[in-house]
Computed example of a mutant assay.
Amino acid sequence: MSVVIVIPARFASSRYPGKPLVTLRGASGRPLSLIRRSWQAAMAVAGIDRVIVATDDVRIRDHAQDFGAEVAMTSPDCRNGTERCAEAVATLGLEPEIVVNLQGDAPLTPAWFVEDLVAGLRAAPDAEVATPVLRCSGRMRADLIADRMAGRVGGTTAVFGAEGQALYFSKEVVPFAAGPFAEEAPSPVFHHVGVYAYRPDALAAYAGWPEGRLEVLEGLEQLRFLERGRRIRCVEVEARGRQFWELNNPEDVPRLETMMRDMRID
């Protein structure tokens, strides 16, 4: 009943080249790289048997090994993090119960997000993939809308059915809601947290499928599963007072640093 976390990290990001090695200053002002902070977040998760950084770049490999991470080298031809996870699992000959993809741009991911995600997949035998969603406050929804109006690719939103079955994911803010919503009030929009838990057979199958039309249009790798009729379970997680944001653009660095100071995360 093993669970493995894989952190895919590539240097040649089209929106933000070199992103995994960008430094973020915590509450004390100490700078640590994005990939190190993401690895630390993974190491804090309970019930995990192994944490692996998967990359195709020797700069990321050397840096990750310097701070003690296990690294799997993967092909530069991987088109996204899910393919990179699949290759790392195959290359290392792993046979876990569940593979977790903790993307390397989400260092503020609380441990309970991943723990609840794994529990959610175990509780849904009909699902092949699970991913966490976080209900947006009025302020978080407004931040997502502001990013889109400014032409920035910000967070992703999720729409799902009554039993948590994913219907769609988008970089637009969906569903539409007239609002307004008070800053701390709950909104009907759910922020998709960039973490996935896969059953190994689904992960291996994914790597052999061509890119999907919607996947390419939205730039969202999980849509390949939906386009193939595969079931994704959305697992609602609780913020518990924590702020959450991914690092998608250079403009997100000061935003994350402010959040870390506010939450006293070093």
Rank of each mutant, 00 (worst) to 15 (best):
S2C: 08
I7W: 11
A9L: 05
F11H: 12
T23A: 15
R25P: 04
R25H: 04
G26D: 07
A27R: 11
S28W: 12
P31W: 02
L32C: 13
S33P: 06
R37P: 02
A42W: 02
A54Y: 02
T55D: 02
D56A: 05
R59M: 01
I60N: 04
R61S: 13
D62L: 12
D62W: 03
F67H: 06
V71T: 11
R79M: 12
T82Q: 06
E83R: 01
R84P: 04
C85P: 02
E87Y: 04
A88V: 00
T91D: 14
G93P: 01
G93Y: 04
L94A: 03
V99Q: 03
V99H: 00
V100N: 05
N101K: 10
L108N: 05
P110W: 09
A111Q: 08
E115C: 08
G120I: 03
E128I: 12
V133H: 09
D143Y: 09
A146W: 00
R148L: 13
M149R: 15
V153C: 13
G154M: 11
T157Y: 01
G164I: 10
L167T: 13
V174F: 11
F176G: 09
F176L: 12
F181V: 00
S187H: 01
F190N: 10
F190T: 03
A202W: 05
A202D: 00
L203I: 02
A205S: 14
A205C: 13
A205T: 04
W209A: 10
P210A: 01
P210E: 03
P210K: 00
G212K: 01
R213Y: 12
V216W: 10
L217W: 13
Q222Y: 12
Q222T: 14
R228A: 14
R228M: 07
G229P: 07
R230P: 07
C234H: 03
E238F: 11
R242T: 11
L247Y: 05
D252T: 09
V253L: 10
R255E: 08
L256W: 08
E257L: 04
M260P: 00
M263W: 11
